[in-house]
Design a protein around this nucleic acid. Sequence first.
RNA 1: UGGGGCGUAGCCAAGCGGUAAGGCAUCGGGUUUUGAUCCCGUGAUUCGCAGGUUCGAAUCCUGCCGCCCCAGCCA
Length: 568
Amino acid sequence: MTDNASDASRAEPRGGHNFLRQLIADQIARGEHHGEVVTRFPPEPNGYLHIGHAKSICLNFGLAEHFGGKCRLRFDDTNPEKEEQEYIDSIQADVHWLGFDWEGAVRFTSDYFDTLYDYALHLIEQGHAYVDELSSEQAREYRGDWNTPGTDSPYRERSVEDNLAAFEKMRAGGFAEGEAALRAKIDMAAGNMNLRDPIIYRVRHAAHHQTGDAWCIYPSYDFAHGQSDAIEGVTHSICTLEFEDHRPLYNWFIEHLPVPARPVQYEFGRLHLNYTITSKRRLRRLIDAGIVDGWDDPRMPTLSGIRRRGYTPASIRAFCETVGVSRSDGVVDTAVLENAVRDDLNHNAPRAMCVMDPLKLVITNLPEEAVEMLAAPGHPNRDDLPARTLPFTREVFIEKADFRESANKKYKRLVLGKRVRLRNAYVVEATDVVRDDAGEVIEVHCRYDPDTLGDNPADGVKPRGVIHWVSASHGRRALVRAYDRLFATPNPGRETGDFLDDLNPASLEVHAGCWIEPGLAEVEAEQRVQFERIGYFVADRFDHLPGAPVFNRVVPLRDSWSKIDDGR
RNA sequence: UGGGGCGUAGCCAAGCGGUAAGGCAUCGGGUUUUGAUCCCGUGAUUCGCAGGUUCGAAUCCUGCCGCCCCAGCCA
């Protein structure tokens, strides 16, 4: 299956509760917002999007979709020193991949720099803002702390004319960075630190990726964000919990400025996943330390990594829906994410066979040149997926783990002297083994029962189970990477102090000598498939070549057996 | 010691004065040519703790405890 296949069935997933969806439904019922809901996804282009952002994307776009409103993509680009075009591109690609389209053109906070500048002027003229020439160190001292009220800056009571002139000097490049900043005149004794005369504009002699050298002063997040929301007619400005105590400031600006609309900020709890990390700093360390291959390594929690791992956009959306949206800060089990993709792939991924750790099985009552083409379904309960054809030959490969010389009855695979069914083919009975000089079994001999295609043996002795296989003469070689979670502990670094000490040493196992059924060698990159009895896999987005197949394991099949009994 | 939040089953999460939804996980049982899927069944005398109001509280009041965020001219 490809992404489009799963997008086709974009049913409203059920499960998690979303307090914002309910709140908006109530508002609309009361006749608010004129029935129109406008949201936005406002990333700063300073890094790659990760699974946590997916929750915000699904929330903002999902709400607009649900209420027939609009959602836009707006880059919050007020800090040119940390932002890059590369991120602007990757963020757009990731949002699209997730399955969302923003209304109209991509927006940038920098689109509104002129208006924002005028708003700043307005604040100065109204006596609500002043240019502070305290250094940032001095400003920190004046700010006080949680237990000490701040002290007014000596520049706080400058005249409007004075401020206007100083602000113009800032804009014209008359100040070096840190020498002056425009601040809102609110309350230096406020319990909420955000209200202790917050910065509105600061000096940055840096070129901006969108506006070039047009400006050497840039608005702060607090000043730019709400006003941009107002300019765009955003009705619900949704952000995460840590911005909660910025809300009074958000409202203060809206109330003191001649903005065209009055957006309202709402906060929700961030997504935390156990066994993973999402901090930009730590993710970068994984790359720098060479532990992963880059931002899109299949083990990374970035959307590009998750995509390369083989997760479907639909499964990420379903996951976000399952997790729900609330105001509490919880930690979601990674198993829920894995389960979401299993759900999707179980329904949509075609089945195939792959032997990852091969052992030769010789069917001695089959002539060497015999090739029987067996039909196999593409999916056990979906006949709309195309069937496949499996060449059945004298020599096939089975998994080493699927054969034992002796085992108890719980072992439902091939045992010397016993029977097992080859998936989609015949029942075989193991008769002999061939050993190498070290005594290791390198070949198993068996006889097959030609009357067991679709039937049990006539003598009533049923096979113990079903194992997968690939023709040794007609199968194709493949490279398979078995990925697992990157960390071995639920909260990396919590106990050890350094998250790098909690790595899962087996997060990647490369299987170079795999055998896949012939039809599988020609699949396209990003095609997903279930290797029966093993798990879900995807043809690598970049490394897979027709004729030189490379598969990534998305997630193994659920396995209730391995944790119960080893069958010995 | 200040300000803002959050505490309901292992994990998410409803409930908002009338006697504890749902999902994931777990554990039983059934079906099965994937030890998968699917299908049934399975858990809180109790809602952080302690008091109080009430015929009746997870829901209201008081006090306490725990966890998260805030002292960037970052977002």
